[in-house]
Amino acid sequence: MIRRRSTPWIHKWSRTLIAAIAGCGALITGYLTIEKLTGGSAACVVEAGAKGCNDVLSSPWATVFGQPLALFGFLAYISMVILALAPLVFNSGENNSRKQLENLTWWLLLVGAIAMSVFSGYLMYVLASQIKAICPYCIGSALFSVSLLVLTIMGRTWEDIGQIFFTALIVGMVTLIGTLGVYAGVNKSDVISETPGQPAKITFNSKGDPNPAFGWEVTTTSGEAEIALASHLAKIGAKEYSAYWCPHCHEQKMIFGKEAEEIINKDVKVECAPEGLNAQTELCKTAKIEGFPTWIVNGKSYSGVQNLEELAKVSGYTGPRNFKYFK
C-alpha cells in the first residue's frame, strides 16, 4: 500500500498568511495615506528633538507623482491580498481553470513581493542615511514586504527554482532602476513656479546637509505683506515649533521669505532639535510637539506647512495680503 504524501502545513496556509500580512500592511499604509492627505500627524512616540514618522512623511521621498507614497503602498498591499485570495474565493470547480488561476496568481505574487522588497530596501537605506529618522511604520512595512517574499517562495512547490532566481533578478533590476529614476530629482534645488499676477508656488527639495545654525539658506525675498504678517505673529505671541533639519520647516521659511523669516526666527520660532542653535527641547516636550513645523496661534495648534493666507486668518491679521508665495 502506497501512502499519499501529506501536504506541508505552509503550503496549506501560505495564501491565508500572505493575505493576512498584506492586510496588515494595507492598514498601516492606509492610515499614513489619510494622515498625509489631511495634513495630520501620525501617532509616533519619539524623543523630543529626534526625527520620527512625521518627519519621514514630510520628507521629499514621501511624495511620488504628486501623491503620498503611502497611497501606492496601500494599493500594492491590496493587490497582494486579492492575488492571494483569488483562487480561494473564485473556485469554479474545474480543476484546469483553478490550476491556471493558482499558477498565474503565484507568479504575480512572486513578482509583487520581489518589487516591494527591493523598493522597501531602498527606502530603508534612505531612512538610515538621508532622513536619519526612526519610523516604526516604515520598518514594519519593510518587514511585511520581506515576509511576503519568503512566504511566496516557500508557500508552494516550484517546478523550476532557477526561474525564480531569474525572475528575481529581472524584477529587482527593473524596480531599482525605476525607483532611482522616480527619486532622481529629490536632491535638486528649490522650485519656484510662477504665474503672472499670481503667488508663486514653492517646492523644496533638500540639497546637502542642513546647517545647525539655520538649516538651509532661504533664497526667497519677502514683500510688505510677509513682513507685516511676521510682525503681527510676533506681537500676538504665536509660536512655530521647528527643527533645523526639517525640509518642511525650510519650505515654511521660503514662503515667508528671508526678511520676514528673520522676524519669525527672532520672536516666533522655537528650535526643537537638541543640536540646533538656541535649542529649547524642554519647551517642545512641554508643548507635546509630535511633528515639524507645528504652529500655536491663539492657543490652537496647526500642524504642517501653513500658507500665509491661513496664518493671517487664524491669527486675526488685518494688514495687506498680497503674499508672494504659497505651498
Score class of each variant (00 low, 15 high):
124 M>T: 01
211 N>D: 15
204 F>K: 01
154 M>I: 05
190 D>F: 03
175 T>N: 09
182 V>S: 12
135 C>L: 03
194 E>S: 14
125 Y>T: 04
134 I>T: 09
164 I>G: 05
211 N>F: 04
177 I>C: 14
216 W>Q: 07
202 I>Y: 07
140 G>Q: 08
173 M>K: 09
194 E>V: 00
176 L>K: 02
119 F>W: 13
137 Y>P: 01
130 Q>N: 13
137 Y>K: 01
191 V>H: 14
115 A>E: 08
116 M>V: 10
176 L>W: 14
177 I>N: 13
161 I>V: 04
193 S>D: 14
137 Y>N: 00
188 K>Y: 11
123 L>S: 11
144 F>W: 00
191 V>M: 14
133 A>C: 05
113 A>W: 09
138 C>A: 03
138 C>T: 01
130 Q>A: 04
185 G>I: 00
190 D>L: 07
113 A>Y: 10
137 Y>D: 05
204 F>E: 02
205 N>L: 06
141 S>E: 06
213 A>H: 11
128 A>D: 11
164 I>S: 09
136 P>M: 09
187 N>T: 05
219 T>E: 10
122 Y>I: 06
166 F>R: 15
154 M>N: 11
166 F>N: 13
159 E>C: 01
140 G>P: 11
169 L>H: 00
188 K>M: 09
145 S>T: 03
150 V>P: 10
